[in-house]
C-alpha cells in the first residue's frame, strides 16, 4: 500500500524536478524564470494535440515513446521511494532496473534512426556512447550495495545499507550523481538548452516527435530523472521498510536537493568537450570502485 503511495507520489511529482532545475538556473542568471510547474502545462497541452510524422517513419518510431515510458514505469516499480517499499520485488530487481534503462535507450535510439535524419543518428550515437560508459559505475555502485547487504533487490538492500560506513556511501552517491547527470543529459555531458542540432544529444533524438508522443517522451525523461535521483538519494538515506512521515519528508527533501544541486552544477559549469566526457564517467567508475573496496 505504502509502495503504491510512493509510486503515485513519484508519478505526480516527477515533472517538478526539471522545473526546479530551470528555476535554479534562472536564479543564477538573474532572471525570473518560468514557473516550476511549466512541464505540467506543457504535458497537458501536448496531450491535447495531434501529431506530425515523418514520411519515412515506421511503427518503430511510433512505438519508441510508448516503450520508453513503459520501461520507466517499470523502473519506478522496482525502486522504493520514501517508505522503503517497492511495488515489485525480486532477487535481481537491481539488474532488471538497469536493463529497463537500457530498454528505454534502445527504443529511443531506434526511433531516432527511423527518421533517417543524420542529426538524430549523431545524437543516438553519442547517447549510446555515454550510456555504455555510465553503465560500469552504476553496476559497481550496486555491487558495493550487494557486497555489504547481500540483498539483490533495492527493497532488500537499502535498509541494510546502514551497515555501511558513511564514506563508502558518500563516494557511491557521488559516483551515482555523475551517472545521474550523464544519463539525464544534463551539463556537463549534454546541454538541454542548446539550440544547434549539431551539438544536441538527447534533444536532437526527439526532434521529430510531436503531440502525445512527445508528451510521453518528456514525461518519461522526468521519471528517469526521478528514479536515478531516488537511487542516489537512497544510498544516503538507508530507511527501513514501512511508512514514516519523517522518512517520506526526508526523501522528498533529498530529491529536491538533488534537483537543486543539478541546477547549481548547470549554472556553474560549462559543457565538457565530447572527448573529455569519458574521463568524467571513468572518474565516476573510480569513485564507485573506491566505494566498493572501502565498503
Amino acid at each position: 500500500m505504502t509502495a503504491l503511495a510512493d509510486f503515485l507520489i513519484a508519478l505526480a511529482l516527477a515533472p517538478l524536478l526539471p522545473g526546479i532545475i530551470n528555476r535554479v538556473k534562472a536564479f543564477f542568471a538573474g532572471r525570473q524564470g518560468q514557473s516550476p510547474f511549466q512541464l505540467y502545462y506543457d504535458l497537458l497541452k501536448l496531450l491535447r494535440k495531434g501529431a506530425v510524422y515523418s514520411t519515412c517513419a515506421t511503427y518503430v518510431f511510433r512505438l519508441g515513446p510508448v516503450i520508453g515510458l513503459a520501461a520507466m514505469l517499470g523502473a519506478l516499480a522496482v525502486m522504493p521511494g520514501g517508505s522503503g517499499d517497492a511495488l515489485h520485488n525480486f532477487d535481481g530487481g537491481i539488474i532488471f532496473f538497469a536493463y529497463l534503462l537500457a530498454l528505454a535507450r534502445f527504443a529511443a535510439i531506434l526511433a531516432a534512426l527511423d527518421t533517417g535524419s543524420s542529426f538524430e543518428g549523431m545524437g543516438a550515437s553519442r547517447e549510446a556512447l555515454y550510456s555504455a560508459l555510465a553503465e560500469p559505475p552504476l553496476f559497481v555502485a550496486l555491487a558495493m550495495l550487494v557486497k555489504t547487504t547481500g540483498g539483490l533487490s533495492f527493497e532488500a538492500a537499502f535498509p541494510d545499507a546502514a551497515l555501511l560506513g558513511g564514506t563508502p556511501r558518500l563516494l557511491a552517491a557521488a559516483a551515482l550523481f555523475l551517472v545521474f547527470l550523464a544519463e539525464n543529459c544534463r551539463i556537463p555531458t549534454d546541454d538541454p538548452n542548446t539550440h544547434l542540432e549539431l551539438t544536441m544529444m538527447h534533444e536532437v533524438m526527439v526532434l521529430d516527435h510531436s503531440g502525445p508522443d512527445f508528451a510521453f517522451i518528456s514525461y518519461g525523461a522526468a521519471l528517469k530523472m526521478w528514479v536515478l535521483g531516488a537511487l542516489t538519494a537512497r544510498f544516503l538515506l538507508p530507511f527501513g521498510p514501512g511508512f514514516e512521515l519523517r522518512q517520506e519528508a526526508l526523501f522528498l527533501a533529498a530529491m529536491f536537493a538533488i534537483a537543486l544541486l543539478t541546477g547549481v552544477v548547470e549554472s556553474c559549469m560549462a559543457r565538457l568537450r565530447l572527448n573529455r566526457v569519458p574521463a568524467m564517467l571513468l572518474a565516476a567508475l573510480a569513485l564507485s570502485f573506491a566505494a566498493f573496496v572501502t565498503a
Binding site: 569519458p278 574521463a279 571513468l282 572518474a283 567508475l285 573510480a286 570502485f289 573506491a290 573496496v293
Partner: peptide, 17 residues
C-alpha cells in the same frame, strides 16, 4: 592516455587492497 590512466589506477587500487 588520461582515460586509460584512470582505469589502470582503479586496477592498481584493487590489487593494493
Amino acid at each position: 592516455s588520461y582515460n586509460l590512466s584512470i582505469v589502470l589506477c582503479a586496477l592498481m587500487l584493487g590489487l593494493c587492497v
